[in-house]
Simulated scan of single mutants.
Amino acid sequence: MPVPPPSDAAGRAPTRLPALRGLFGGLGDLGSAVRRQAESNGLLRWGLVIAAVGLGLGLRFALSGALPASGFPFLTFFPVVIAAAWLAGLRAGLAAAALSVLAARWYFMAPVQQWGGLAGPDWIALVFFAAVLVFDCVVVDGLWRALDRAREAQARLRAADQRKNETLAVIAHELRNPLQPLTHAVAVLERDPGLSPASRRALAIARRQVRQQARIVEDLLDAGRVARGEMTLQCRPMRLGPVLEHLRESFDELLAGRGQVLEVDEAGGGLAVVGDEARLVQALGNLVANASKFSPSGARVRVSAAEVGGRIEVRVQDGGRGLAPQDLQRVFALYEQGTEAGRPLVDGASAGLGIGLAIVRHIAERHGGRAWAESEGEGRGACFVLELPLAPAA
């Protein structure tokens, strides 16, 4: 069954949750900045304490008509003490708690001539109030420190990820430099009329491998662009026919060399999209290459396109190893692979770097579409679907 990602009616990934994460992340960064300043600046720290207690006291007076004059007159002090502990640290929170207890005692608890000026139940309430405030301060301070450690770890991970992307980009550029001369050299050798059949077969293998390496290098470069959000598209109204034909020309020989058959259903070639032809060829090429890689010799890889529910679905079906249910989403994450990736592949090929399918999903989403996988389980083949919006009627 298909497991597409959540989307709105137009097929776009929702943006509300990332926006909320950004808002709360910004508030967290602001609170962290205030906390660090307060921990190093005593004047700011105690100013926050006095402001917090003053706010709680003012709110309590403002609500004096709605809250009881005695018993539990502490409602407005809890949030301000928690805020003081969060923004200024444990010592500031405990100081705010002590001042709040004194304020509650002198302003909002009726005095009597026993138990040091308070009735027994009021003493119990006051002690309970103080204990809860201390507990809140300790918990809030511990939570802040845990979140701060998590933020620091996340910052280190982002920095490491940035260095990794930069390193991969440098490696990809260095690997790409010799590929063009190799391609040219193979083409020159193939024009020699005196080549033996064995030499021509060897050159055909070399040509396929050079093309495969070129695709891997381009995927490496695009992985960095995806991570930085810098992949560019040049979209225009177009039909799928040229894309499907390009797939046939690019992969017929590659699959034939592995003893596989590529079937391209041209019935969907007349469907129109607004897209970047080169990027759509890249996305579908990654799907075909992936299907071939995980299919045995003699397998068929079928590409078809059809209109479904007012949108275009391009399907790449293979008869290979299939996917476990937990891998249907995982394989589209950058640098992730399915659980089958460690097993030997056709022609001894490697499972790759976990880049190709992530690029497929990114290209689909940039076109306002989606990408997902379907499989009935391991050993039963898989179908990868690229969904695109139809071009508006002229």
Rank of each mutant, 00 (worst) to 15 (best):
L27C: 10
A391V: 06
I363A: 05
R236I: 01
L328V: 09
D276S: 10
L182I: 13
S304Y: 01
A351F: 09
P121H: 13
I216V: 14
M109H: 06
A272Q: 12
L203T: 06
A155C: 00
E263H: 13
L357R: 03
L195G: 06
Q337S: 13
E245S: 11
G229H: 04
R330P: 00
A10Q: 14
F384L: 15
W115T: 10
V134E: 03
S100I: 08
G309A: 08
A38T: 07
A172R: 05
E230M: 02
E376D: 15
A394F: 04
A185E: 13
F74H: 09
V217W: 03
A33H: 11
N165C: 01
V261K: 12
A185L: 14
A33F: 07
S375D: 06
N286L: 06
W115N: 12
A169T: 13
G42K: 07
P5H: 05
A104L: 03
G352K: 04
V314S: 00
I216S: 10
P68A: 14
S304W: 01
A341F: 09
I216W: 08
E340H: 07
G342Y: 07
R302G: 05
G194H: 11
L287N: 00
L102W: 09
I216Y: 08
L57P: 01
D141Q: 11
A146E: 05
A146C: 01
P242F: 07
V360R: 04
S199P: 00
C383A: 14
A69F: 07
E374F: 03
A169R: 13
E365A: 14
L254M: 13
R370S: 10
V226E: 00
R366K: 10
A291Y: 04
P121I: 12
R158C: 01
F294Y: 15
G28F: 09
